[in-house]
Design a protein around this nucleic acid. Structure first.
Lengths: 347, 347
DNA sequence: CTGAAAGCGCTTACAG
DNA sequence: CTGAAAGCGCTTACAG
């Protein structure tokens, strides 16, 4: 480890090799146009030859800009955190920024500690990644640099929050079911305490109402985000209401459980009962039997857009309010037309 | 955003308030013992009052230590990356270190770029997180600071690699099945190109052999890491060899597929056929029907141990070779004794 | 167009 | 025990 520790090459080395002062070398490398073309060429050549990498520390100390962003997450272990984080990291790298990662793990003390740490490291801005899409208290008052909230909405409207659009996603899914001729549509979802569950259910009912339909079973079945709950709920639903011809699920795990139970009860998916999931969690949705039609939240784009807003703020153009990223319907085999003949399956 | 930008307080401010020089203030804060107790007290008080946070940049420029680690991942999106990353982040935070995250996403160009970036930022060390537990080319020659490899083994034995112990995990799982009286044990796993698949299969056969058993079906069924493959393989196995009483699976997704197919074929799990998974991926293992007995790789500990080795190297005590973290068997309902009477299920 | 000088916020010999 | 001074590697007025 660290076997060939070579002295790092410094701007002074470059200047010496190019035969100029460090001041001139600095200007040449930073493309300030007070430098003669020939001089610039020599400096760039020297830098290239020495594989010069300017010290981000020294530059940061001088300019106050560290080209570093603090990414403060509530709970990195959550499934949706990673795609968002990838989007953030991607967009930052394009802007030559690096990201300091801090995961508070739902602990307020730890979060406070990390906020101080990131400030001490003089990050240029913060990305605050929520652990649910519920509204959360703004952290901005304690943070002296621009902040953008992702996935979870800040309770201060002066902040900017980049969010998934559950109204839109649920509408896509529901319209899809309606357009397939489904008329007895039930809804199985997670705990009512989650904004995601409530928003998706509300949007579903709005779309059904505008199609002249009522929610099968009367009310959404709130439960938990698990296959187990999906299995239980599907059995309850089909026992109470055998005419159900579609089940919209609050996430893909629930949908996988629903699909298993529906098949176990001898109904065909999608012919007898069509099923839609939510989230497009690949291992559950694409690998389900049958593969699930579902809603993709475009999480990576959410992360990228958040960074765009942060960059704008760093350039003195802060934004505020809520930005919603549209969702995308992914159609697979768990949904199909209502009155189709039994399909000649090649499954 | 960034509404109340306050001037950051500097060591000079603290020194002034405490009525000492910056040199003395610095010594007092860094607990060097050339400072009078009373003086130290005044300085600490002043720092506290001003909520002083030393500039990591300035300190780093001076000392050459940035208290920052570069975490270079091959593919953060992989399931096992997150627990390891959490372990790393946790252990680093305990050491007052921050982590710069760079995900190469399997792209060599991008990886090179990130290595240069991290070096330019003068990280004190690297953690290189592999995207599989296959052996990988060492990156150490290009990196002038200590490096520790995690999950994927470096091909240079002078490097230190902290790995999961698949031999151990597979042994735990197999011994568990054997101890339950299972005698016709088959193995369904991922692609043979994966070291994880090969190592787990090898260990399984060793344990079986030492118990005087042969692998049911003659050879492991290599396929893919999916539920679908689990379903397919289970049907093949039970058709060809109806006496199979246990199926060991290369991961939890496969096991979930196997469990679904076994039940569909009218066999009871665990009574007729016991099933073990691998990975303890909660959403698949704990939420399976029935919940899966599986092997936990202790990924978070792997990350923490890697950091310990890195810290040791930073203290001038580098290690080398392979360090393996023992696994842990998680017993749930998918395994049980062989000749039990039909259970009075409360499921 | 070029370079000497000051300074970013610290730490660390060194002198007193 | 305390403090003036130099220096970490840059950038940026400023003078020439």
């Amino acid at each position: 480890m660290g076997r060939q520790r070579s002295r790092t090459v410094t701007l002074t080395d470059v200047a010496r090799l190019a035969g100029v002062s460090v001041a001139t070398a600095s200007k040449a490398l930073n493309a300030r146009d007070e430098v003669a073309p020939e001089t610039r060429r020599r400096v760039l050549e020297a830098a290239e030859e020495l594989r010069f990498q300017p010290s981000v520390l020294a530059r940061g100390l001088q300019t106050g800009r560290t080209r570093t962003i603090g990414l403060l997450t509530d709970e990195l272990a959550h499934r949706f955190s990673i795609p968002i984080l990838l989007g953030v990291e991607n967009a930052l790298a394009n802007g030559q920024m690096s990201v300091l990662l801090c995961d508070a793990r739902g602990d307020a003390i730890r979060r406070q500690h990390y906020i101080r740490t990131l400030i001490a490291r003089q990050v240029d801005g913060f990305v605050v990644l929520g652990d649910s899409n519920d509204v959360r208290p703004s952290l901005t008052p304690q943070i002296p640099v621009p902040v953008v909230y992702v996935y979870g909405e800040s309770d201060d409207p002066r902040d900017v929050s980049v969010l998934a659009d559950d109204e839109h996603g649920s509408r896509l899914a529901t319209e899809h079911l309606v357009s397939l001729g489904r008329r007895q549509i039930a809804h199985v979802t997670g705990p009512q305490s989650y904004r995601a569950a409530r928003d998706r259910a509300t949007s579903l009912r709005v779309v059904l109402a505008s199609a002249g339909l009522a929610l099968a079973g009367g009310a959404p079945l709130y439960g938990e985000w698990s296959q187990r709950w999906g299995r239980t709920a599907a059995k309850m639903l089909l026992a109470a209401n055998p005419d159900i011809d579609a089940i919209s699920c609050g996430n893909d795990q629930i949908a996988a459980g629903v699909a298993a139970a529906v098949r176990e009860l001898g109904r065909r998916v999608p012919d007898d009962v069509s099923i839609v999931g939510y989230d497009n969690w690949h291992e559950f949705a694409a690998d389900c039997q049958p593969p699930l039609t579902t809603v993709d939240l475009n999480l990576q784009q959410i992360g990228e857009i958040a960074v765009k807003h942060l960059f704008a703020a760093l350039d003195g153009q802060p934004s505020s309010g809520v930005v919603r990223q549209p969702s995308r319907l992914i159609v697979r085999d768990s949904t199909g037309p209502r009155l189709s003949p039994a399909r000649t399956s090649t499954d």
